[in-house]
């Protein structure tokens, strides 16, 4: 209040450099009005949607607000892509998940960080007949499903050479062909 006539009438804004502030008329509360890009809140203490950090170090070490870091696996048209404080990614796409959308989600395998979306995470598609417990998940990296005895292929879809009867659902059985009368 500059009308009191004392040297302490005007106080500096309790805001980061460059921000202006105003007094809320009814309550007398001081709020920052022009927080730096990416920040918001009464004291510019929060990050805007799409950004994360702790610009004033209120609950963790000071970290300026930065754009969500989600391995290019978020959609810029989405809202709430990451947690405003921790940066945890909340809206991973292309079948990814993890804190930074840096892993394939359950039931998918491949490289979540591949530049081309088509090369990222592919479905495991484990064959139900050849997979232990009819699991739908596979090795995150190789995509290998967990096969029943004597079953082969990444997706456990065929019997090993010399074995048959994938249909049993218990693995494949040895063919038991007579070596003398068989061609292989």
């Amino acid at each position: 209040d500059a009308t009191q006539g004392t040297s302490g009438d005007c106080k500096p804004c309790p805001c980061p450099a460059g921000a202006t502030c105003a007094v809320v008329p009814r309550t007398g509360e001081v709020v920052c009005t022009n927080c730096p890009a990416g920040t918001t809140g009464k004291r510019c203490e929060l990050c805007d949607d799409g950004f994360f950090g702790d610009p004033l170090g209120q609950s963790r070490p000071v970290q300026p607000c930065r754009a969500c870091k989600c391995s290019d696996n978020i959609d810029p048209n989405a809202v709430g892509n990451c947690n405003r404080e921790t940066g945890q990614c909340l809206k991973c796409i292309y079948n990814t998940n993890g804190f930074f959308c840096d892993r394939c989600k359950e039931g998918f395998y491949g490289n979540a960080l591949a530049p081309n979306p088509a090369d990222k995470c592919k479905p495991c598609s484990c064959s139900p007949l050849g997979t232990v417990g009819q699991q739908t998940s596979c090795s995150q990296v190789t995509g290998q499903c967990q096969c029943l005895p004597n079953v082969s292929e990444r997706d456990c879809s065929t019997c090993q050479p010399g074995f048959f009867n994938l249909q049993s659902g218990d693995g494949c059985e040895r063919c038991n062909c007579n070596p003398i009368g068989s061609t292989n």
Binding site: T33, N34, C35, A37, T40, D48, D49, V79
Partner: peptide, 8 residues
């Protein structure tokens, strides 16, 4: 608005 952030 004076405040320069996204409008929804």
């Amino acid at each position: 608005p004076q405040k320069r952030t996204k409008l929804y």
